[in-house]
Design a protein around this nucleic acid. Structure first.
Lengths: 145, 145
DNA sequence: ACTAAATAGTGGACAAAAGCCACCATTCTG
DNA sequence: CAGAATGGTGGCTTTTGTCCACTATTTAGT
């Protein structure tokens, strides 16, 4: 078991890391999207989540809020709604070509942000960083394919 | 240099970790504080930041917003303002005895949350986790005492 | 097959969180 | 000593998020 000083260090790290990532990533890069809108688009493009309920669960957002965000994106021709073939209560969402362009843009800039974050490190240090992330990932989020 | 797949894994981790910590930590445990208020109290208790400007910088909050949060905490006798001896523009903040109790409570529960997060791991895995956090910490936040 | 519970989505109303701007007072800098 | 920078505050607005109620469908139990 870890002692209190160690727990404290973990919490310190957590606070700092969250703030740092928040600052870095809350940018939406000339896409005219708000940050929550961009989160939806990124999840759709990256993980191919295509129902409102999946998105709201993944992003931990209220489903009515999610519904409104989707509505905003639909009205801007970034995503489209289609009826679900398997569940009449549900809908399938799809990025439009415009939406996909926006996703590509967000995705590319996000990659650049991470690279910038690591740009002060040597290649060896970057690998060390990556390995540590993998370690934490498998320990904390074990149920991943 | 890391390749795109690795960058992608890091970003995946970042997103998940931020969401997880957000969910876990946004609780203020019967303290009747809002989350931003609690953040201020924790920073004060933990790092002894005692001016509004330090707090706003550390938490990355707008200074007018910070000012309002402080006002709320003062009105609830959780912190007090005192004139600064060294800079007449500034103020010193201090937790009242009540405020300190609240801090202790928040702090203890936050520790328990981290412990709960790690409770599914063996002691060896917990140590592995801690080491990985330390690695990332020193790589990303090198300028720490 | 039938009913009750659970689930997906929506909208109204509202609260919480945060940002922008202008301003004052003080301190720092050249 | 003038001008720039800094710390703090308040007005005002926007963004973000929550709660609740409701409809339509699907699932589970019997």
């Amino acid at each position: 078991m870890l002692n209190l000083a160690q727990i404290g260090q973990i919490r310190d790290f957590n606070r700092q890391y969250v703030i740092k990532l928040g600052v870095l990533s809350r940018k939406t890069y000339q896409t005219d999207l708000t940050w929550p809108q961009a989160r939806l688009v990124i999840e759709m493009g990256l993980h191919h989540l295509n129902t409102p309920i999946e998105l709201s669960r993944q992003l931990n957002l209220d489903k009515s809020y999610t519904s409104r965000l989707i509505k905003q994106l639909v009205s801007r021709d970034i995503i489209v709604k289609e009826p679900s073939a398997v569940d009449a209560r549900s809908i399938n969402l799809r990025l439009t070509p415009d939406g996909d362009k926006i996703f590509q843009q967000l995705n590319q800039r996000s990659n650049q942000q991470v690279q910038a974050l690591l740009s002060g490190l040597t290649p060896d240090q970057q690998t060390e960083f990556f390995t540590a992330i993998q370690t934490i990932n498998t320990l904390i989020f074990p149920n991943k394919k």
